Computed example of a mutant assay.
Amino acid sequence: MGGANPGGANGQATDAVLIAGPTASGKSALALSLAERTGGIVINTDSMQVYRDLRIITARPTPAEEARVPHRLYGHVDAGVNCSAGMWVTDAAAALEEARTQNRLPIFTGGSGLYFKALTRGLSAVPPIPSQVRDDVRARLDRDGAEALHVILAQRDSAAAQRLNPRDRTRVARALEVVEATGRSLTDWHRDGLPPLLPPDKVRAIFLAPERGALYARIDARFSAMLAAGALEEVRALAERHLDPLLPAMKAHGVPALVRHLRGELSLEQAADIGRADTRHYAKRQFTWFRHQLPEFAWTTPEEAETWVVGAAPGL
């Protein structure tokens, strides 16, 4: 296949293209366009689009789009699994090797900053947590609440406790289960990590930054389109599995509010409003996270990025 190599960062060969951005910024369409022009392969870099149960509510590429170019790591994980960043890195390494073997340009696209950071900077090597430890911590979380667990965490891992909001259920539980399972602070584990998959000087990394008002309007419209396309039925099927509410798939934007609607706690419009608002807030956090954590990404408008694709492919 026609791989695209010349003209990467600092004039060196480009090993991969990284397309990040807030939700609903047009990342998937840009990646598809670039893959068609270069014979590339699109690799999902979004923590929610890995789940097979959530095609509509996470705005995964459609089957027709996936048929146009090779797509990897979309919908390959069951919603009952906690797909950690470490699991994703292992899968991404295999997808990257496939692209290299086939001489295809790997195009990583998504909105999960930690995944992009793992690609170019590596990842902490926290070992798997035994299920009995995780179940015990979650039972205590349900019984006593996040703030009570935060008090215990402060005694076991004061550094982690100081960084975390005492009401942050997910992160407090995670930090506590790590220290209880391993005897080491999460901070300590972060010092010894997995090496990066890609050298940062050999990737072309861009961040799509639409005008905020237009982006928020697009987010709102897309949520309505998701509902029209069957998102509620998708969430209904997920809710009927009675999975742990702390699982990532159960916290995808729009899922908790739609589950509450299905329970009769909210009207559909109330649930949709919550889903839209949560998604807008998430987009705002994505802007902030990438600005501070991955400043090497070149910020561009979606329109400028499309021009770049036309001009750069196939000679990146």
Rank of each mutant, 00 (worst) to 15 (best):
W88C: 08
S131F: 05
L96N: 03
L114C: 06
I129W: 09
F116A: 02
Q132D: 14
F108Y: 10
S84L: 08
A95M: 05
F108N: 01
V133E: 11
R104T: 01
V126Q: 13
N103Y: 00
T90H: 06
T109S: 07
W88T: 05
L105V: 01
A95Q: 03
G80I: 12
A99H: 01
G86V: 13
L119D: 07
F108P: 01
A118I: 08
G110F: 06
E97M: 08
C83N: 14
G111Q: 08
E98A: 08
V89I: 12
T109R: 03
A99F: 01
P127S: 08
F108G: 00
V81L: 14
L114Y: 07
T109A: 06
E97L: 11
M87F: 09
T90S: 09
A99K: 02
W88K: 09
A118T: 15
A99I: 01
T120P: 13
E97N: 10
A125R: 13
R121N: 13
Q102C: 03
A85W: 07
F108W: 05
A94T: 06
G111I: 05
R100N: 03
L123S: 07
T109M: 03
A125Q: 13
T101H: 05
S124V: 15
N103F: 00
Q102A: 04
A125C: 07
A95K: 02
L114R: 12
V126A: 08
G122W: 04
G80K: 15
T101Y: 03
G86Q: 13
L119R: 04
R134N: 13
T90P: 04
T120G: 09
L114Q: 11
V81N: 12
T90F: 09
G113P: 02
M87A: 14
P127C: 09
L123H: 09
S124D: 11
K117G: 08
V133G: 15
G80F: 15
G80W: 15
G110N: 02
G122E: 10
L105E: 00
G86N: 11
P106D: 01
W88A: 11
P128M: 14
L114G: 07
P106A: 01
F116N: 00
L119C: 10
A118D: 07
C83P: 15
A99P: 02
T101R: 06
P128A: 12
I129L: 06
T120C: 13
Q102M: 04
T90R: 08
L105S: 00
M87L: 12
G111L: 06
A93N: 07
L105Y: 01
A93Q: 09
R100V: 03
V89N: 07
A93G: 10
T101S: 04
P106I: 00
I129E: 13
D91R: 11
V89G: 07
G113Y: 12
I107Y: 00
V133R: 15
A92M: 02
C83M: 10
L123M: 09
F108K: 02
T109Q: 06
A95L: 05
Q102D: 06
A94D: 04
T120S: 12
